[in-house]
């Protein structure tokens, strides 16, 4: 019996050592509260465009990936604190963020728009927005844009986009500003969002909105950054990106 245990332990150790050397492990920070890009399904699994892209990139780079969920507020600090090695969370590539982290090439780019309740008749003019409250996710490009360009509206900041949707359906906030695709697929097309609509112009000024969503890594990890960029190009070329894209959207969001 004793011999058997020793043998089993030895076998387990060889196996563990073998698999570790064969496959590098990368931890990826995701948000998990931003449908359809990243959310948690009723059985507790992470699902969404970001998640599938993350897994596809890991397959492409032949590495083992562990996904770590982290609230948006602390998503960059946790990367810097080495809680994970990369962020795949629909993060727009902006100048402010580049001061703290490095970005891969973009993996998608979609504009921002406002959302209102059907029949509310709110218009995006100085007069129309007077006394209105607008909900945004705290610390996003939409927050920065709204704070700078619409100083007269009452801004309500939420930790997650999901909380903003909840307050919208409760009638606590008049408008939301967020990514058009995220709101369309994550809210308007769902049962809870059927009385709401996107309206007004599409906003994509590079000054606020950057060059699209990229993968953030620590500034010292240039090698990982380049491998991720190469992997994005590779899945774009071999059709994997398209098959994921088509599962969620009826147009190419790249």
């Amino acid at each position: 019996m004793k011999k058997f245990i020793v043998a089993a332990v030895a076998a387990a150790m060889t196996f563990a050592a073998g698999s570790a050397s064969a496959q590098e492990e990368i931890r990826i920070g995701v948000e998990g509260a931003y449908p359809p890009f990243s959310s948690v399904d009723p059985s507790g699994n992470l699902v969404g465009f970001d998640i599938e892209i993350a897994n596809a990139l890991c397959d492409e780079m032949k590495v083992k990936c562990t996904l770590v969920t982290q609230d948006w507020d602390g998503i960059i600090p946790a990367l810097l604190a080495k809680k994970y090695d990369a962020i795949i969370a629909s993060m727009s590539i902006t100048e402010e963020r580049k001061q703290k982290v490095d970005f891969s090439e973009k993996y998608y780019n979609t504009p921002a728009r406002f959302l209102r309740k059907k029949g509310s008749g709110i218009e995006i003019t100085a007069e129309g927005l007077k006394g209105k409250s607008v909900g945004v996710q705290r610390g996003t490009i939409h927050d920065t844009f709204l704070t700078a360009e619409f100083p007269d509206v009452e801004i309500k900041r939420y930790g997650t986009q999901d909380e903003a949707y909840l307050d919208m359906t409760a009638g606590r906030v008049d408008l939301l500003l967020a990514d058009s695709v995220a709101m369309d697929d994550g809210f308007v097309k769902t049962d809870a969002g059927k009385d709401y609509e996107l309206f007004g112009p599409s906003y994509s000024e590079p000054k606020y909105f950057g060059e699209g969503a990229g993968i953030a890594v620590r500034k010292s990890d240039t090698e990982l950054r380049d491998r991720l960029s190469a992997a994005i190009m590779a899945i774009r070329a071999n059709g994997v990106y398209k098959s994921i894209n088509d599962k969620y959207f009826d147009f190419d969001i790249y």
């Binding site: 507020d73 610390g139 309500k156 930790g159």
Partner: peptide, 22 residues
Amino acid sequence: STITLVDLTGAARIVQSRYYAP
């Protein structure tokens, strides 16, 4: 601060998400 109010902690959360300086 967890329900959109900007109290002392809410202010800190805005500042940290703006400058990534927790």
